[in-house]
Design a protein around this nucleic acid. Structure first.
Lengths: 341, 341
DNA sequence: CTGAAAGCGCTAACAT
DNA sequence: ATGTTAGCGCTTTCAG
């Protein structure tokens, strides 16, 4: 692999001159003639600057770190996409650390070790934490290390640099959809997590329900992990309710959870949407192919991911960490799991 | 951020001694006393070795590159998982480059540029190409750069270092399942790609069908991209066939394609499985929740991903690039989209 | 307009 | 048992 020195030798100039030319140093002042010689030599040797050496010198790696719970969650792939797209557009590479894989591989301790290694060993210029349930404590620790940090789809008290969608608005339009359909007995399957996002979604639900003049019964409000099993488990108690005590519609705060809810309801012997309408937070292409096709609230998740990168890039350049709410309006995608009453 | 020098100063030893101790240099020969002093100093300063400096010196980054078409394809998430898990277990980080994001961001040229940068600039020790439809030409180029390289779920003539599942066997058991159910008119929705994998799956289909004494009509064999739209489009011509000319069962060579096929068939006014049985190559949790629940062939994709990492690690250590077929047996997961005739 | 020199933080061969 | 030295490949003053 050719180095700067090799190019310099071939072009018969000093390495520093080659560096200047190849970086397009603003203090150009290089004679076109030498410039051409250098370019030619560089091409001939297929020269590529060594990222490690450059990074060591400049303290910039043009690489971003991403901590994510799982690459598999369909509710999350849009965010990852947005991150990848924006990173690629900015010429940045991204190191992805999947928490689930870490746990599979080695246990909690190693996970923290790997995170801390990632942010401390100079490998990345900044970090995107798209891990809603990562301990606030750990997040605070990461933030204190002083590395540029952006939280996605979550906020942590005292930590700046975050981007979220308008979770409250998303919950609200879900409820408005159900109310518009004539439902007055509306339940909620929330996220079983003490996170800011969980609270915002639930708050949006409560506010919208209240605004419609409704008071949900407390046993219509349950929660579970945003997984198939979580949704299924969470809805069990509702399915067992006496028909006269049951809600007629459920808003589920996660996509995967909603699919679990669908399954739980079916196993409980009820029909969706005839006996229970279901609407989910977050959309996905596959929602149209479920049984029944799932009505969802589509959130601007791609944008959220992309903006996270932009915010991080700002922070890396020394600007203040901003907290952003994506203002793009969420939208109900009506499919077969909700109907009028 | 503390450096080796800082630790050395605090412990009142030479940096090289600190390095030895902290790396656990086999040529230990360090007095327990100084050793303790060094460890204490390192802890006190929260010392972390700089990965760039170390990599520059040792020519090892403990980082792997992964080129993947899209993180979104549910048929592929298991592989990514396997890769992440094995990488984490081996203490390696992984840089993920998503081709789709690259295209969204900038166009073909940039993609090649980014790949080549990734493999040439010393950032990663080796590369996993999990991109079935990446040009053979490009793959050959990458391989020629001399960087350790492992292909996943694909092979390229002349390039060594690959891991695939037993695609032929997967196709075969799909067909055996259908034949066992009494089907004798079996069609195939293949991958619209000139790839080794596409050929292996189709070959498995043809062989198994032949072994059952059947001869599929040529208009029962179609192909499309492994996407919803691809599957839907591919099956259109079959749906239009006169009932007496139609196959009674279809084997679809991709999961996403099969979901598209389901939709295409429904739109064509046919019932699955009553008028047409469908079985898909590759399984996913969500297949159980589709309409109808999709019968699939479960392939050892997690293993494939994990073994890719192991192979790559071998190659990085200087061993020969091996070509591996995961021998774990595929398995039919019977759900609602296939039935007896 | 170009070269010389220093140094980013680390490791490894060599010396003592 | 520890220190000295050189250098990985690059960028960036500073000279000239």
């Amino acid at each position: 692999m050719a180095t700067l020195k090799d190019v310099a030798r071939l072009a018969e100039v000093d390495p520093s001159t080659v560096s200047r030319v190849l970086r397009g140093d603003p203090v150009q002042a290089v004679r076109p003639e030498t410039r051409d010689r250098i370019l030619a030599a560089s091409q001939r040797l297929h020269y590529r600057p060594n990222a490690l050496a450059r990074g060591l010198r400049t303290r910039r790696t043009d690489t971003l770190g991403l901590i994510i719970p799982s690459l598999e969650n369909v509710g999350f792939s849009e965010v990852t996409h947005g991150i990848q797209a924006a990173a690629a557009a900015a010429g940045r590479l991204v190191v992805v650390v999947e928490a689930e894989a870490l746990e599979r591989a080695g246990g909690e301790g190693d996970a923290e070790e790997l995170y801390s290694r990632l942010i401390t060993d100079g490998r990345v210029d900044g970090l995107i934490v798209a891990f809603a349930t990562l301990d606030d404590h750990l997040v605070t620790q990461l933030a204190e290390r002083g590395i540029p940090l952006v939280l996605v789809n979550r906020r942590t008290a005292g930590v700046h640099g975050s981007v979220v969608v308008d979770d409250e608005r998303g919950s609200a339009i879900a409820i408005e959809h159900l109310v518009g359909l004539g439902h007055r007995r509306i339940g909620y399957v929330g996220l079983a997590a003490e996170t800011d996002t969980a609270r915002r979604r639930e708050h949006g639900f409560r506010t919208a329900v209240g605004a419609a003049g409704l008071t949900p019964r407390s046993d219509w409000i349950v929660s579970g992990a945003p997984t198939l099993a979580g949704g299924k488990g969470a809805v069990a108690s509702i399915v067992r309710l006496d028909p006269s005590d049951r809600p007629t519609a459920l808003f589920v705060a996660s996509l995967l959870g909603a699919i679990g809810v669908l399954a739980g309801i079916r196993e409980g012997g009820l029909q969706v949407p005839d006996e229970m309408s279901i609407i989910a937070f977050n959309d996905h292409e596959l929602a149209a192919h479920l049984d029944p096709p799932l009505t969802t609230v589509r959130m601007p998740n791609f944008r959220m991911g992309a903006e996270a990168v932009n915010l991080l890039l700002e922070a890396i350049e020394g600007q203040d960490h901003r907290d952003l709410v994506i203002d793009e309006a969420p939208e109900v995608i009506m499919r077969g799991s909700t109907r009028g009453i």
